[in-house]
Design a protein around this nucleic acid. Structure first.
Lengths: 330, 330
DNA sequence: CTGTTAGCGCGTTCAC
DNA sequence: GTGAACGCGCTAACAG
C-alpha cells in the first residue's frame, strides 16, 4: 500500500542529484565509487524499482515482448508443447527482466491485428511468431511495420524474418531410418495441416525417404482414427505408421485395437512430439522428443538479440526419437 | 516504419491545442461538436494510437492485467482448460483494449515474486489468481501490496480477496445424484491435490453425499492407474468412480480394461472436466462440462470492475454433467 | 573525473 | 477552448 519510491526521493535521502542516482542505478560512469555505493544502498533500503512506463517513455525500449497463439482446430495436440515453450521463453526473458504479453486469437488475420495494435501502442519491443505457414502473410506485415520479430520454426522461405528452427526433415529421416532398421518397408505418414510449413518439410522428407505418399489431416483424433482405419483395412496395410502429433497417434492405438491389430506385432506406431498422453496408451508410444523448454529459452534469447539488431537464422538441436513399446521388428 | 504520430502533430494539423485533441480523443466535454469531429477525423487519417507508456505515466492505469500460472505436477490435465480460460479472458480484455501479461512459474513462492515485481514496476493494474489453496499465502500478500486481484475459484476462506467461483460442492452432488439414479450405491472418488481448495470442496461434498472416503492424488495418470487398480481389486470394488481430472479418468479406463472389467457394465467412470481426451477413450467418458471460455470472460470483466473499486464475490454458473458411454446402470 | 542543471518523451489535467 | 505543469527516468550539456 506504500507509495511509489521515485528517483527524486532517493536523491533527497542520499543528498545528491537525480542524475547521479540515475547514473548509479544504471551502472554508468559519472559518479564516484563511494557515492555509487551510498546511492545503491539507499535505493535498496527504499526498495526502489524503475517505473516501466517512465522508462519506456524516455528510452526506446518497453521491456516486453509479445507472443500470439492462433488456435484453430490444430491447436489440439500442441498444448503441452505450448506451455513448455512459454515456460522456457520466460526463464530467458526473466534474465533481461522483460515481460511477456500473450494473446490467444482465432486466426492469422486476428493475429496480424494484434501485432499492429501492440506496435502502434508501443507495448512490445518485439514478437515471437509460431507456426509458420505456406504463403504466410505475417513476415511481410512485420517487416513493413518494422516490428522486430523472430520466427520460431523457420527458416522463412521468403528470407524476410530471422528464425530459429529445428530440422524437421532430418528428424523425419531419422524416424524412417529407425523403422527401416526394424525391417519395415511399407510405412505410412499421417501428416498435419498442409498449410503449415513444417508439415510440408516432413512430407517432403518422408516421401523422399520412402517413396510413399503422406496423408494430410486436421490433427484431430477423429482424423487420426479415420486415416488409421483406412490404412489398416487397405489391401496391403502398412506395417508402420508415423503420426504428426500425439493426439492422432493415441487415436491410432485405439483404432488398431478395435480392428484387432496388435501393436507393435501387427503395426508399429510413432508419435511426433512427446507428451504425457504417449505414456497413457498400452503399449506406450515411441515418440520424437524435443527439448521444448530449452527451445523456448533459446528463442527468447535470440529475439532479444534480434531486437538489438542481430539478423540471420539459428538452427536448434535435432529432435531425438525415443523408442518405447509401440515400435518393434516386423 | 513510419514515425509515431503524436497528439502534438494532430493538434498542429487540426489547428487546435493539444488539450483539445486529448479531450476529443477521450470523449470528454470541453470541445465543440464541430471541433471534436474535425480532430477525430484528422486522428483517424493519421492513424494515431495512444502510446501506452505515456498514458500509463500520466494516468494511473497501465491498461494491462496479469496472470501467473504455477505449474507443478498437477498442470498435466489443466492445459486445455487453461488455454480456453485465457482465450475467454482476452476476449473480455479486448473490449477495454487491455493487454494480458502472462507468466509460467514453478511454485507459489515464485508466483508471489512475480506479483511484487509487476506491481513495483507498475506493469499491471490488477491480477487474476488461479488455483486457490488451503492456507494460501497469496491473498494476504496481494492485500498488503494493494494490488487489485480477483481470485478465480474462491470464495477466499479468509475473506481477503474478491472472487468469482463455481460451486464445486453442488457439482459433485449432481454427479453423485446421477450415479445414484443409475442404481450405484458404492461409489469412489479419486480426488486431486489435497492442498487445493476445490479439492477440499469436492471431497466434503462427496463424503457428505455418499458416506464414503475420497482418495487424494497428484493428478497424474500414474496415480489414476494405481488407485483404480487398488479400488477394483479390493474385496468389495465400487461400481462407479469419479475422477478429479481427465487424465486420471483416461488412465482409469485403461486400467479397467487391463483388469478385464468392462466399462460401463462392471464399473462406471466419470471425469471432472471435459477435454478432447474424454472422447479418445472407448467408451467415451461421461464428463463434467464447464463453459471455461465464458468463465474466463466473466472473470476478466469482474477484475476490471474490481480495479474500479468493486468488491464482493460472484458465483458463476454450475458445471453440467454430460453423460456419455462410460456411465450406465448397475 | 565528479556532479549538477535543464529539458525531453507524450498524454493528461487544472487553472484561467 | 487554451497554456502550462506534471508524472518519472534518461541524457545531453555544463560547472566545479
Amino acid at each position: 500500500m506504500r507509495r511509489r519510491v521515485t528517483i527524486r526521493e532517493i536523491a533527497r535521502r542520499a543528498g545528491v542529484s537525480e542524475s547521479a542516482v540515475s547514473f548509479a542505478l544504471n551502472n554508468r560512469p559519472g559518479v564516484s565509487e563511494y557515492t555509487r555505493r551510498l546511492i545503491l544502498q539507499v535505493a535498496a533500503e527504499m526498495e526502489w524499482r524503475p517505473n516501466s512506463a517512465a522508462r519506456a517513455l524516455g528510452g526506446s525500449r518497453v521491456g516486453a515482448v509479445g507472443l500470439v497463439f492462433a488456435r484453430p482446430a490444430e491447436t489440439l495436440g500442441v498444448e503441452p508443447f505450448f506451455l513448455r515453450l512459454v515456460s522456457g521463453i520466460q526463464s530467458a526473458l526473466a534474465a533481461s527482466s522483460a515481460a511477456l504479453l500473450f494473446q490467444v486469437v482465432e486466426d492469422v488475420t486476428a493475429e496480424s491485428t494484434v501485432y499492429r495494435q501492440w506496435w502502434s501502442e508501443r507495448r512490445v519491443d518485439g514478437v515471437l511468431l509460431v507456426d509458420p505457414r505456406v504463403d504466410d502473410p505475417r513476415p511481410a506485415l512485420l517487416a513493413s511495420l518494422g516490428l522486430p520479430a523472430l520466427l520460431i520454426g523457420g527458416p522463412d522461405p521468403t528470407g524476410t524474418l530471422p528464425s530459429i528452427w529445428a530440422d524437421d526433415a532430418r528428424a523425419m529421416t531419422s524416424i524412417v531410418a529407425h523403422l527401416h532398421a526394424l525391417g519395415h518397408t511399407h510405412i505410412a505418414h499421417v501428416a498435419g495441416l498442409p498449410a503449415l510449413l513444417h508439415t510440408q518439410h516432413r512430407i517432403s522428407a518422408f516421401e523422399a525417404a520412402t517413396g510413399a505418399t503422406s496423408v494430410t489431416t486436421d490433427y484431430t483424433d477423429t482424423a487420426g482414427s479415420q486415416v488409421t482405419r483406412d490404412l489398416l483395412t487397405a489391401p496391403k496395410p502398412p506395417t508402420a505408421i508415423v503420426y504428426d502429433n500425439d493426439i492422432m497417434a493415441v487415436a491410432g492405438v485405439g483404432t488398431a485395437a478395435e480392428l484387432g491389430r496388435s501393436v507393435p506385432d501387427d503395426v508399429s506406431l510413432v508419435a511426433w512430439d512427446d507428451s504425457p498422453l504417449c505414456r497413457l496408451t498400452h503399449p506406450s508410444l515411441t515418440a520424437l522428443v524435443r527439448d521444448t523448454y530449452g527451445f523456448g529459452q533459446r528463442a527468447a534469447q535470440r529475439l532479444m538479440a534480434v531486437i538489438d539488431g542481430a539478423t540471420g537464422d539459428v538452427e536448434d538441436e535435432l529432435p531425438q526419437l525415443e523408442p518405447r513399446g509401440s515400435t518393434g521388428r516386423v
